[in-house]
């Protein structure tokens, strides 16, 4: 099987965020960047499919910063090669989707995996956009996957339950937590990954569709009435919820 996993380089979720000097992006100073956590589920699923059916796993990223670090992580997990599309400036989702689609359209991938969202802009949009640009079906937020030849059965989380979706390859899948338990690369895997190829591909020029006007930290408008646990304190909280906030 010919498998592609699209990954992204994101700030560690525990990182403190500060607004950068341009007021439109975050200050990247002191920010630790990691492989997007959901992409680990996507990688693991692709690698397991390869281990079962044979084939190759390619990892791909589009980034304005040097993303070879996270591509090496993907290679250490078990991807065979990587593609790095270096953007001239921070790309928006539209540019990322067009770049992925453009670079893989002739490569006949059977399955294209993504994490359900990148934990930077949390938009859940690249998988379906890329699938549409490639004119292939897709399933988002997949927590269980069966692949038998060209037949794919995916289970995905919806409000209050699960949906089972049937489709066939080629297709795109966005991975949800629970799909599998991603492996930790061992030292020999990390060493091996250093020798695996990373191909640099030129950025496909399209204009961004979405412009960031400004970024700001949320303003805390919370009431902030924090009391103790005495009976009268609890009474006061219940009264506030009932009479002030009117939520009960």
């Amino acid at each position: 099987m010919n498998l592609l996993v699209c990954v992204s380089r994101v700030p560690d979720t525990a990182t403190k965020i500060f607004v950068g000097p341009d007021g439109k992006t975050i200050d990247s100073k002191g920010v630790k960047y990691i492989l997007n956590p959901y992409d680990e589920f996507a990688l693991e699923e692709a690698i397991r499919l390869k281990e079962k059916n044979g084939g190759e796993v390619t990892a791909l990223t589009v980034s304005a910063d040097d993303a070879t670090d996270i591509l090496r992580n993907a290679l250490a997990m078990g991807a065979d090669s990587a593609i790095f599309i270096k953007a001239p400036a921070e790309p928006d989702s539209y540019q990322v989707a067009h770049n992925i689609a453009n670079s893989v359209k002739d490569k006949n991938f059977d399955l294209i995996f993504f994490g359900r969202q990148s934990v930077d802009f949390d938009s859940f949009q690249i998988p379906s956009m890329v699938a549409e640009l490639l004119n292939i079906p897709s399933v988002s937020v997949v927590s269980k996957l069966e692949v038998n030849g060209s037949k794919v059965i995916a289970e995905r989380d919806i409000e209050g339950g699960k949906e089972t979706v049937e489709l066939s390859t080629p297709c795109a899948i966005s991975a949800q937590k629970g799909l599998n338990e991603p492996r930790y690369p061992k030292l020999p895997d990390i060493m091996k990954a250093k020798k695996k190829p990373i191909e640099e591909v030129a950025f496909f020029q399209v204009d961004a569709a979405v412009e960031v006007i400004s970024i700001a930290l949320p303003v805390n408008k919370r009431v902030g009435k924090i009391l103790g646990d005495s009976d009268s304190d609890i009474n006061e909280i219940v009264r506030s919820l009932h009479e002030d906030a009117k939520v009960i």
């Binding site: 965020i17 949390d122 979405v210 412009e211 960031v212 006007i213 700001a216």
Partner: peptide, 20 residues
């Protein structure tokens, strides 16, 4: 149309406009 959306796990908010 200016759309506001949370980013970075809600640690920041961006205001955006669409150029399409």
């Amino acid at each position: 149309i200016v759309a506001t959306k949370p980013v970075y796990a809600g640690k920041a908010l961006i205001k955006t406009k669409i150029n399409k």
